[in-house]
């Protein structure tokens, strides 16, 4: 088996999920300059709601793919409503407060959601049911499962749709304008508050999809999963250049690859001293390196405001 190619495949899958979550961070940052630390928790809620729906419907004997679809149809609105509530009650009242206040509020929401999830779903790990038959294909000595193929294609399709929405529609243009200058956007007639809400809600829909993907690909969901995932996706957003949509997609993919390859080779690199369970090291090495050497991220350069 070709380890290199295998790790590339695993990395792309992981990276697609990171990218979906990173988009939620970067879109909100782009518009409000706020790091929504509760976003990882929204992914967690998405995964657990999807888990609940699927296990509840399992006895009906419906095909698993349909179960997953129904799970998403429930998880996405739940996450969207949750994001709407978070924005409305945790962030909006602090819109004009010093930057530290909404950040603390975000961390508070994050802890609150973790504890609520612990009360609802308990402390145990929940095993996700299989969504797709365990088919796999051999390519160049590595294996890719049907689930991985679907994950990658679905993530890519979703991101393409988002890019279209933002670049080609009037609503997307209003979002970009709000990100650049909300006061001027309002003068153009853009309902700024509604655009901000929309940004949160779209990010939450992506988070729900990502939650389902995490559950399906790594087979577990638990109340604490949002913390590390959120931190990694945040790293991905910073790597790509926070506030930059394309950057978040690129950063997610790159981080997935770095982690996967790093995890795959860390034993060889350290002569067996560290195992692949240390793969988290790489994400945070990336975060620290970016912050030290290129704080703007890979695509963080902006056009100057005036010529």
């Amino acid at each position: 088996m070709d380890i290199f190619l295998q790790q590339i495949i695993n990395g792309v899958v992981l990276g697609s999920i990171y990218a979906l979550v990173a988009l939620g961070y970067t879109m909100v940052y782009g518009i409000l300059g706020l790091i929504n630390f509760a976003h990882g928790e929204v992914v967690m809620v998405g995964a657990l709601v999807a888990y609940t729906v699927m296990t509840a419907l399992l006895p009906t004997g419906l095909p698993p793919v349909l179960l997953a679809l129904l799970a998403l149809l429930v998880a996405a609105p739940v996450c969207m409503a949750l994001a709407w509530i978070i924005e409305r009650y945790a962030y909006r009242p602090l819109r004009h407060a010093p930057k530290l206040a909404p950040l603390i509020s975000a961390i508070g929401v994050s802890i609150l959601l973790q504890n609520l999830a612990m009360m609802i779903w308990g402390r145990s790990y929940h095993a996700f049911p299989d969504i797709l038959p365990p088919l796999h294909y051999d390519i160049g000595g590595a294996q890719i499962t049907l689930l991985q193929v679907v994950t990658i294609l679905l993530a890519a399709g979703t991101m393409a749709a988002l890019a279209w929405l933002i670049q080609r529609t009037a609503m997307g243009q209003a979002m970009r304008a709000t990100a650049e200058n909300p006061a001027i956007a309002a003068l153009m007639g853009v309902p700024v508050n509604r655009i901000i809400t929309l940004t949160f809600v779209i990010g939450a829909a992506l988070a729900a999809l990502a939650g389902l993907m995490v559950g399906a690909n790594y087979s577990v969901a638990h109340y604490y999963m949002g913390f590390m995932l959120g931190l990694k996706a945040f790293t991905a957003a910073v790597l790509g250049g926070i506030g930059n949509i394309t950057g978040a997609m690129l950063g997610g993919l790159l981080l997935g690859l770095i982690e996967s390859l790093g995890g795959g080779y860390i034993e060889d690199l350290t002569g067996g001293f560290l195992g692949s369970n240390y793969q988290d090291i790489f994400a945070f090495l990336v975060l620290i390196s970016v912050l030290v050497f290129r704080p703007g991220g890979l695509m963080g350069e902006r056009v100057s405001e005036r010529a």
Partner: peptide, 30 residues
């Protein structure tokens, strides 16, 4: 603020306030 324009009031702000990261055409359409 965002309802003014629907009543026929438009402000050209000090310092121009064009959206630097959007094209000229996009700015006009906005």
């Amino acid at each position: 603020a965002h309802e003014l324009v629907t009543h026929g009031v438009a402000l050209v702000p000090e310092g121009r306030g064009v959206f630097a990261r959007q094209t000229v055409l996009e700015n006009l359409k906005l």
